[in-house]
């Protein structure tokens, strides 16, 4: 019964997301939603590797950037459509991930995390220095194939749904148990005869593939990449972790929730409530609101940073993981005492 209800809820959410563009005609909001859906893919992929398999990656941008550059390079070198990147981008990300995992999975914990970080940095430098092939810091610019946002929106939605379905399928299968056993205690898993190296590789390959596809989508949609954008440690790799942690590590829907929170909140801070606070200030002519909106835009990154600190401090399992705690804190549920 509960399973049925779960499925109904999922279909309802998916249907709601599918209808949004038909109702919301504001392309700016669709733009934000497309970005959020892209982050659902990246966050879910990170979560599979880190949240379920326990191998924390600090270098997701390596796969993201590879996917994006695959799509871009197909265009400028061979004149193919960047949409081929959706196919080849994922494959190229796996091509990078495979040898990397093969060599580096002997490292554990923080050491593995640092190795992924180094991979991220190395690829960024390669993309910067190898000017004859990648155009270096000049970047790659392509024109979007559609002016309307709708195709991008539905492709992003399909990818986001696909990534969640893949993760659900994986985690419900035997694989899922192996992944979890590695996260909980790698040595115990090994002594029970689990080929940990193989399963870690499998987890990494799936994660890298999804991230690479998201990267290709980014190239198609944004139309401009340079090494500092797509191989960014701060804006991609760390953001991927934040999406996972804020949403909830090791939960199916955590990264999805995290992605929406992070993208929308970041933009809300940047534009002082999508420009509404400013509009409200102009409209009501309340001096306090005017200066508040000015200070908010000026300190948008500060506000965002404080939010991150607060979430990690008070909801270490993320919004989904600490949902009960959040409800209690907001007094929306009567059980227990507010913190």
């Amino acid at each position: 019964m509960t399973v049925n209800r779960g499925i109904v809820a999922q279909i309802a959410v998916l249907a709601a997301l599918a209808v949004i563009p038909l109702v919301v005609h504001n392309d700016y909001y669709l733009h934000l939603l497309i970005l959020a859906l892209m982050w659902v893919v990246i966050g879910s992929a990170w979560n599979l590797l880190a949240g379920y398999t326990g191998q924390v990656s600090f270098g997701d941008a390596a796969f993201f950037g590879t996917g994006a550059y695959t799509a871009g390079l197909l265009v400028i070198h061979w004149g193919w459509s960047a949409w081929w990147g959706l196919f080849f981008g994922g494959i190229m990300a796996v091509v990078i991930a495979f040898p990397f995992g093969w060599i580096c999975f002997r490292l554990r914990g923080a050491y593995f995390a640092l190795a992924t970080l180094a991979l991220n940095e190395v690829l960024r430098h390669v993309a910067t220095i190898w000017e004859s092939f990648t155009q270096g810091m000049v970047g790659i610019m392509i024109m979007q194939s559609y002016i309307s946002k709708l195709p991008y929106y539905y492709i992003a939605l399909a990818l986001a749904a696909l990534s969640i379905i893949i993760i659900r399928l994986v985690m419900r299968s035997r694989l899922g148990y192996y992944f979890l056993s590695i996260r909980e205690d790698q040595d115990a898993a090994e002594s029970l005869g689990v080929n940990t190296h193989f399963y870690k590789m499998l987890s990494l390959v799936i994660a890298a593939w999804l991230t690479g596809v998201a990267g290709a989508l980014y190239m198609n949609y944004m139309g401009f990449i340079d090494p500092h954008v797509v191989f960014s440690l701060h804006d991609i790799s760390i953001m991927a972790i934040l999406v996972g942690i804020v949403g909830g590590v090791g939960t199916t829907y955590g990264p999805a929730v995290g992605a929406f929170i992070m993208v929308l909140v970041q933009e809300m801070f940047r534009t002082a409530g999508f420009g509404y606070i400013k509009a409200a200030a102009k409209f009501t002519d309340v001096q306090f609101l005017i200066s508040a909106s000015e200070q908010l835009t000026k300190g948008h990154a500060l506000g965002f940073g404080i939010l991150v600190v607060l979430v990690i401090r008070y909801m270490p399992n993320g919004v989904v993981g600490d949902w009960g705690k959040l409800m209690i804190a907001l007094r929306l549920q009567k059980t227990g005492r507010a913190k």
């Binding site: 392309d27 700016y28 733009h31 934000l32 970005l35 970047g139 940047r270 999508f274 990154a301």
Partner: peptide, 24 residues
């Protein structure tokens, strides 16, 4: 004049111009 901050990042600049054209 509506000033938008691109945070010195191309993707943010892109979001900013989208917002200016469509939203504002």
């Amino acid at each position: 004049v509506i000033f938008e901050d691109d945070s010195s990042k191309p993707d943010v600049g892109r979001s900013a111009i989208e917002k200016l054209i469509r939203q504002d």
